[in-house]
Simulated scan of single mutants.
Amino acid sequence: MKNSILFASLFLASILLEAQNITPMDTIFANDQKNVSLFFPNPVRQGIVGSDNFVFTYNREKEQYFGLLQAKPGKPSNLLIINSNGSIFTYIISYKEQLEKLNYFIPQSENIGFEQPRFTESSDSTNVANLFTDKTFYYERFCSFLLTRKQHIGNIQKRKNGIVLSLENIVFDKEELYFVIKIENKSSLDYDLNFLDISTQTRKQGKKKSIQRISQHPNFKYNVPTKVGEKEIKRMVYVLPKFSLSNDKMIVLELNEKNGERNIKMKVSNKYINNPN
């Protein structure tokens, strides 16, 4: 996996802040010449930045107590940190050419709350807490968030008879891969979707090499249409358990038309699976 920032639905932080009536902390400045170190009272489990001109790196394989922040020129954004004990820290982050401080030692007293909300009013606490324990709710909100982003993993598409199938993005979050997929109907005839399948396939090597194909069963599907009207665009998200591929394998997206022959099979290199956003 590429050493990039984990995406997460920023609605989570806003709900927590609103529910607990807490204001984010002060501004942390960074640039692209030096690393700004942030040391926390508990190991960092997740770090989220709100803009692509900031990068917060931390050890995903083994939880450690610190992370490194860098920034490119651009507008200020925000940084959300979740520690291993569920405590949450949030800061405004901004680019600054000359840095006066390179190390921040964050005390536990600066946390704004916990990933599992702690409320005193039982009726409201039960309803809000359920938002974070309901996996379907998280899937729906995070998928909706991904569909609002303009980020792309590459120009991956295939077309047939006016139907264009595109893989816009692959995002890694919480041990799962989120496939952002687009179907565009440029024809004058509606497209009735029979199924959209994602599978792994062995690259064919030589005449006697057999092709092994294994379907990947999604944990969740979001916004999948039954029909794509003429001149219409539909975007959806498939959530799959995390996996990686060796060099002799690839991903295949298969789009199948109900009662029609405008079927598309699109092959995707293993490099996009092994290096998601």
Rank of each mutant, 00 (worst) to 15 (best):
N127C: 14
D32T: 03
R45D: 08
E100Q: 09
Y272I: 10
E261N: 15
R203W: 08
F105Y: 15
K242W: 04
I112C: 00
L99W: 11
E140P: 13
G67P: 09
A129I: 14
Q20L: 07
F132S: 07
L177E: 02
F7Y: 15
Y178A: 02
N277M: 03
N161E: 14
S14T: 05
N53V: 08
D192I: 08
L167P: 07
M250A: 07
K96V: 01
Q70P: 09
N259T: 03
K207R: 14
E257M: 10
V44K: 04
N263E: 08
L10K: 06
N185I: 06
K96F: 03
L177Y: 08
Q151K: 10
Y222C: 08
T57R: 14
K265D: 12
S269G: 03
G113D: 07
K158D: 12
L16A: 03
G74M: 05
P218S: 12
D173H: 15
Q70W: 10
R118D: 12
N247G: 00
D26H: 11
L146S: 01
D52H: 12
I112D: 00
N247R: 11
G50K: 04
S123W: 12
L147N: 01
I15G: 05
Q20M: 08
K209D: 15
G229A: 10
I181Q: 01
I211D: 12
H217P: 01
M1A: 14
Y95S: 13
K2G: 03
V268A: 02
I81D: 11
G50E: 06
N78Q: 11
F56P: 09
Q108I: 03
Y104F: 02
R118Y: 11
V44R: 03
I163C: 05
T200F: 07
I153Y: 07
I5D: 05
F195A: 10
K208W: 14
F142H: 08
G47V: 14
V252A: 12
L147Q: 05
S166E: 04
G74N: 06
G74R: 03
D52A: 13
P107F: 06
L16Q: 11
N274T: 03
S166H: 02
I81W: 10
L16N: 09
L69R: 01
S166I: 00
E110L: 13
N169P: 02
T126Y: 15
N270G: 03
A8V: 00
L80F: 13
I28E: 06
Q64H: 06
I181F: 00
L102C: 06
R213A: 04
F11T: 10
I81N: 07
E254A: 09
K209A: 15
L167E: 05
N247Y: 10
N259D: 11
D32R: 10
N127H: 14
E100V: 01
E97N: 15
K231V: 03
S125D: 14
R213V: 05
A30S: 11
I93L: 09
D52M: 08
I15M: 10
D190N: 12
K101S: 02
N83L: 13
E18Q: 07
K242F: 11
N42F: 01
G47L: 10
D52F: 08
K150W: 02
N3P: 00
P43D: 12
A30W: 07
L6D: 05
F66G: 13
I163A: 04
S199N: 05
N130M: 13
I198G: 06
N270T: 07
Q116R: 14
F145T: 07
N219Q: 13
K75S: 15
V237A: 00
S246F: 05
K258G: 00
F66D: 15
